[in-house]
Amino acid sequence: MNNENQLNSHRYPTDPLESLRKTIVFGAKDWSEDKRDAWIYGIVVGWNDESLSELSIKYRWSEEHVQRLKQLNQAFKRLQQKK
């Protein structure tokens, strides 16, 4: 690996899933303000139980939707671990 690749690999994640997660986590955006954004955040990062309960009321997500979101988050985490 040349010096440029080493520098880039330390400065920026090369894993697209990790890059996506870091973009969401470290951004200034409030991911709970929009239904679609909240869903994306739930898949990539995951909501704690209290926040998820509040969001399910706010966006009228059924228990089935909440369980599906949790399953999608677990699947996302599994994909990240396969690297």
Rank of each mutant, 00 (worst) to 15 (best):
M1N: 06
M1T: 03
N2K: 09
N3C: 06
N5S: 09
N5H: 12
N5Q: 13
Q6W: 10
H10M: 06
H10I: 08
H10T: 06
R11Q: 07
R11M: 12
Y12L: 04
P13M: 15
P13D: 09
P13F: 15
T14E: 09
L20T: 06
L20C: 11
L20I: 05
R21I: 03
R21Q: 09
K22H: 12
K22N: 06
K22L: 14
T23N: 09
I24F: 15
I24H: 12
V25Y: 14
V25P: 01
V25W: 13
F26L: 02
F26A: 01
F26R: 05
G27R: 08
A28C: 04
A28F: 13
D30Y: 07
E33N: 13
E33T: 05
E33G: 05
D34M: 02
D34N: 09
K35E: 14
K35W: 11
K35R: 09
K35V: 02
R36C: 01
R36H: 08
R36G: 02
R36I: 01
D37W: 07
D37M: 07
A38Y: 15
A38E: 12
I40W: 07
I40T: 01
I40A: 05
Y41W: 13
Y41R: 01
Y41S: 00
I43G: 00
I43S: 01
I43M: 11
V44Q: 02
V44P: 00
V45D: 01
V45W: 04
V45N: 03
V45G: 04
G46E: 10
W47M: 00
W47Q: 02
N48F: 14
N48R: 09
N48H: 12
N48C: 06
D49W: 02
D49V: 05
D49T: 13
S51H: 10
L52I: 13
L52V: 14
S53I: 01
S53M: 13
S53R: 14
E54I: 10
E54W: 02
E54F: 03
E54M: 09
S56L: 04
K58T: 10
K58C: 03
Y59G: 00
R60W: 03
R60K: 08
W61N: 00
S62Q: 08
S62T: 09
S62P: 08
S62C: 10
E63H: 13
E63F: 06
E64K: 11
E64A: 12
V66C: 06
K70G: 11
K70P: 15
K70A: 09
Q71Y: 00
Q71M: 05
Q71D: 11
Q71C: 04
N73S: 04
N73A: 04
N73P: 07
N73Y: 11
A75T: 14
A75L: 08
F76L: 03
F76Y: 15
F76V: 07
F76H: 11
K77L: 07
K77C: 05
R78M: 06
R78F: 04
L79Q: 12
Q81R: 11
Q81A: 10
